[in-house]
Simulated scan of single mutants.
Amino acid sequence: MRSGEGVVREICVIGGNRYFGKRLIARLMAAGDRVTVINRGSSAPPAGAIHLVADRNDENSLEKALGSRTFDVVIDQVCYTPRQAEIARRVFAGRARRYVMTSTVEVYEYEDSAALVREDAVDPRTVAVDLELPWDDPEFLDAHYGEGKRQAEAVFARTRPAEPAFPYVAVRVAHVLGGDDDFTGRLDHYTDRIRTGEPIAVPAVNHPATYIHVEEIADFLAWAAGADFTGPVNAASHGALTTEELCEAVAAHVPEGGTVFRSVEVGEVSPFSFARSYGMDNSRGTRLGFTFGESSEWLPRAVAETLGKDN
């Protein structure tokens, strides 16, 4: 039941105490939902939220913290591996009417298409799951981020005769920009190089990509929590952006600098530069009722926010 119809929804958020996660929690609470936040205790949730301390990688810890609680919706902000998904599916089966997993555009890392990529390009029902891979090794996980998310989706999508269906949504999030709390440092990379004139390394053929503003993805996740669709859905603003467009927006705040690109055939390139084309098609989310913004319209604001400038 949606809040605002006389019934308060019980919503559990796993992780999500920074960046767009904290914005999501604020939106849910403002809508009148009762929000329970689960994390390992490293940071407290906003005032008014229920705080449960548990290690989501430890099934017993999670079960003990939850007790007999049940939820209308669980929003999992920190599911990176199929092992984590297996634990979550076992623990929340029967506890949650709906499970929303924050996934990523990187599930399409093997795609290379001139056309925007639709959800059916990666069907989680056909993705093989290997629980024996070293998912607990941070270096392995970092190098296999997209694969971890693909296999986590596959666990939630799985159907077996003796296993009840799991009502899940996998929100495949585009590259996120904006906010004064962007902890990634990716725009700082461009700022530093434009300010000093140091070359910006890009692939020989550099493709545009799809993005979403930090406030927009918080809106999308809050909207998805209250909807009734299931399965994968792409979350990206309209309009792909090129590295050149990003640099133009940054350069507007660094008038003393200069933008120099260096094309590389092999080796490390700058963030937000891509040797393949895998921008996301957002038509499913649009058909379901979400109104996406235009990336070219919010880009100047996003850059100004992150660089701490007045826009």
Results as ranks from 00 to 15, higher is better:
227 A>D: 13
12 C>E: 01
101 M>H: 05
199 P>R: 03
76 D>N: 11
221 L>C: 00
116 L>E: 12
113 S>P: 03
228 D>N: 12
191 T>P: 04
4 G>A: 09
201 A>L: 14
165 A>E: 13
44 A>R: 15
294 E>D: 14
265 E>C: 05
170 A>P: 10
73 V>R: 01
215 E>D: 15
35 V>F: 08
118 R>L: 04
130 D>M: 08
126 T>L: 13
103 S>M: 07
297 E>G: 00
8 V>N: 10
96 A>K: 07
109 E>I: 03
75 I>K: 05
163 E>F: 07
129 V>D: 06
161 P>N: 10
260 V>Q: 01
174 A>T: 03
282 N>F: 01
211 Y>R: 02
269 V>N: 01
5 E>L: 13
8 V>S: 13
47 A>M: 12
92 F>A: 08
309 K>L: 05
253 H>T: 05
19 Y>E: 07
277 S>K: 10
147 E>P: 03
184 T>L: 09
183 F>P: 04
143 A>F: 08
90 R>F: 10
222 A>V: 02
133 L>W: 08
118 R>V: 09
6 G>M: 02
120 D>K: 11
165 A>R: 13
102 T>I: 14
267 G>E: 02
133 L>Q: 12
77 Q>E: 14
1 M>F: 07
252 A>C: 12
49 A>W: 03
271 P>C: 06
247 C>D: 01
146 G>E: 00
52 L>F: 01
114 A>G: 14
48 G>Y: 14
260 V>P: 02
65 A>E: 07
216 E>L: 05
102 T>Q: 11
17 N>P: 01
290 F>C: 02
26 A>K: 08
280 M>L: 13
99 Y>R: 05
179 G>L: 09
281 D>Y: 03
155 V>I: 13
199 P>G: 02
68 S>G: 09
180 D>N: 12
64 K>M: 13
309 K>H: 11
143 A>C: 13
80 Y>W: 10
23 R>V: 00
169 V>I: 11
190 Y>N: 06
197 G>T: 03
193 R>I: 12
196 T>R: 12
194 I>T: 04
72 D>Q: 08
6 G>D: 07
70 T>S: 11
